[in-house]
Write a protein that binds this DNA or RNA. Structure first.
Lengths: 240, 240
DNA sequence: GCTCCAATCTGGTATAGACCAGATTATGAA
DNA sequence: TTCATAATCTGGTCTATACCAGATTGGAGC
């Protein structure tokens, strides 16, 4: 007997969950179409969609625009306090990374950026906009704002790998301290578009503001992640 | 002229946003009912609800079960790496904190807890379950698992204030290092119920696992936050 | 084989209506 | 005034249907 007063779409969520387990659907595998599911579970498409949205919120499945529903891969572990490049820790965890540079320009510091970096409004600043994949699923887009005073030749460097590694190797730069901000938000506008998800899809915002030993602004990193893509994992206070 | 191919519910989202600005609705103020809004904006309740859900995902408004939609207060800034108690930093930011202890028991270490703490399965462990408010809005629920070896008299202490402060003052305990995990999830079951939100509401999970100077397990903290309630803010590498 | 285009399949959006259950408010009796 | 209760208001759930637009597929023509 199912509990009374338990809405149909929540019952469906549970039945879908166990159905997925029974079928042993694995990472990135596709579910049957909504119409097929609504027949199979004797309900309407609207209600099935409600149940699917629940599973999406829980991170079990994700949608690919007008293509269908798929099983969400395991979360990527991520430590924003470390300087290790994306490619390296993705590989370390047994996944296949890929980075696309969507734009890379030398532009002028806008007011909001001036406010948090101390740069003058209109001062030259590099802006790199990239999309990162894990196993061919786009997990995040990232805006990098880099102080050109420290690395004048950045535009001619490749930005499809780690910017940090490049800053360290080519320009001998490393941050002395940084301010990190993290909060959940809805992906919208440019970011939603670049990730191929619907407006309002749940996401996680991570911002890193780095300064060098002399307290000068080095780099600002603004990352927009899919909500189900990562698990932040930090160790603090260890002296090894 | 509005952009073509822009769905009605997204247009509504924008119109509602500006309408809220025009009306100068402030923190915790109530919106008109869905039926009223759907008339006012010449659409159906379903579509209005879609627009409201967008604004909810974006953190502008939140819902209170069968009572209505309200303006979301400003996010609370939160640094999980510091030992400052909830009450203190809520107050520091000009808000009014409140904590309810929902349960407080001495129980036996379950397998999953044994795995991450090193305690023996079945070993005694304190479990405190609390709900935290800011300005009378419940923002998170929190499970604390505390090693009784270090603070035998915990059950008789008040847990409506900072557990950390108590551990420090009464038992002279402070953590040497800790592992922090953070990721977005959907609030469900006990946590959703305790916060009075619908199953599947977006949330943020924060876990802190603390050990003392000798590497012994001190405390495990599992927090379930509303997604729109906080902004994590950490400074790393500063030597002041 | 290949390319191109049409048919088809998919999820995305939108309407109109209905009923439910919890929360609030109004009412009226004590 | 107090307190129980009834009416009402609110969001929550659900059905049935329709059409759209992007993605995929299948086949015709080369």
């Amino acid at each position: 007997m199912s509990r009374i007063d338990y809405p149909v779409y929540l019952q469906l969520r549970d039945r879908l969950w166990t159905w997925i387990e029974d079928e042993q659907l694995g990472s990135q595998q596709r579910l049957p179409s909504e119409r097929e599911l609504s027949e199979r579970f004797h309900t309407t498409r609207v209600t099935i969609r409600q149940a699917l949205s629940q599973l999406e919120a829980e991170g079990l499945i994700f949608r690919s625009n007008r293509r269908g529903w798929y099983i969400t891969p395991e979360r990527l572990r991520y430590d924003p306090s470390r300087d290790v490049g994306f490619n390296r820790y993705v590989t370390e965890q047994g996944f296949r990374p890929r980075t696309e540079t969507l734009s890379k320009v030398l532009t002028e510091t806008p007011p909001w950026l001036s406010e948090i970096t101390g740069l003058a409004i209109g001062a030259p600043i590099y802006h790199v906009f990239r999309r990162r994949y894990v196993d061919e699923r786009g997990l995040l887009v990232e805006h990098n704002y880099i102080n050109p005073a420290h690395c004048p030749g950045l535009l001619s460097e490749s930005t499809d790998v780690s910017i940090w590694q490049m800053l360290r190797d080519q320009y001998d730069l490393c941050p002395e301290h940084r301010d990190i901000e993290i909060y959940p938000l809805a992906l919208k506008g440019l970011e939603a578009e670049a990730l191929g998800v619907n407006q309002g899809t749940a996401g996680l915002y991570i911002q890193r503001l780095s300064f060098d030993q002399r307290g000068e602004f080095l780099e600002l990193d603004r990352e927009y992640w899919l909500h189900d893509a990562l698990k932040i994992s930090v160790r603090i206070g260890d002296r090894h």
